[in-house]
Amino acid sequence: MTQLLFFNVFNGLIVGAFYALMALGLSLILNLSGVINFAHGGFLAIGGYLAYSLIPYIGFWGALVLAPVLTAFIGILVERVLIRRLYGRDPLYSLLLTFGLAFIIEDGTRFIWGAQSLPFQVPSWLVTPLSDDYFFLTGYRLFMVLVVGIAVAGLFFILNRTRLGIRIRAGTLDLETVSVLGVNVRLLRNMNFGLGIYLAGLAGVLAVGQLGLQPTIGASLIMPSFVAIIVGGLGSLPGTLLGGMLIGVASGITTVFFPSATEAVIYVMMAAVLLVRPRGLLGEEGRF
């Protein structure tokens, strides 16, 4: 029992790390541009599929580095051509646009790579369990947690220590002033979008090693990411991180005691948070 619980809590942490990685990207875009990117799951899938196609040529490690970057470039392109036109308009329109994009990407990946689940090879030395008792502690899982940790640390480093990050944070608070101070806001939003999509692509490469590769992988991960943002608090990136981990662990624990509620439990958590603290756990008051 303890082992089962431990297994599921650990599993929940991994899943939560994915949610958090995805939700952080969503949050970045939402905070600076006011766009809920429904297509985020689609970009995650693109990351995974690109990695799949790249592995035969440059191996797993090369793909881990290159696939998210390529995904980010696609994201930057999409922002330039489509999403940019909708800034400043009713958020309804960007919602619908990214919604349509999600359809196109899902169907497009199905068209290119096929509807069936594809095998995804991770290096064999990562797959073997580290311990007989704790069979689920494979190297790959620890590795995923490590990569997510590095990515999150890198993100907060960028946001706190680099010029780009400081501008992003300033723009989140008051875009007009940032613009008046001479920052190219269009470029800033563009880069910020790319950064968010990079995180989605990275989550994609990691997730397919764990969850398998199929066109619907993005659609199944996007809703929990929304919940992570809401639970953690809109406008707060540490909150989003916390929210993702919390809902991951909560659904892990629920798997042990009441498996059929595994998915539903996170929405119950969201309802509870909204009831007690509508702005979310670490959300700022009065922002939304």
Binding site: L30, I36, L234, E263, Y267, V268, M270, A271, L274
Partner: peptide
Amino acid sequence: LRGVYFAMVTIAFGQVFYFIAFR
């Protein structure tokens, strides 16, 4: 809640019923 936040919460709440029907 207002605006995008309202949209996000309504979408997310909808999923509860989906999972109930599904499971």
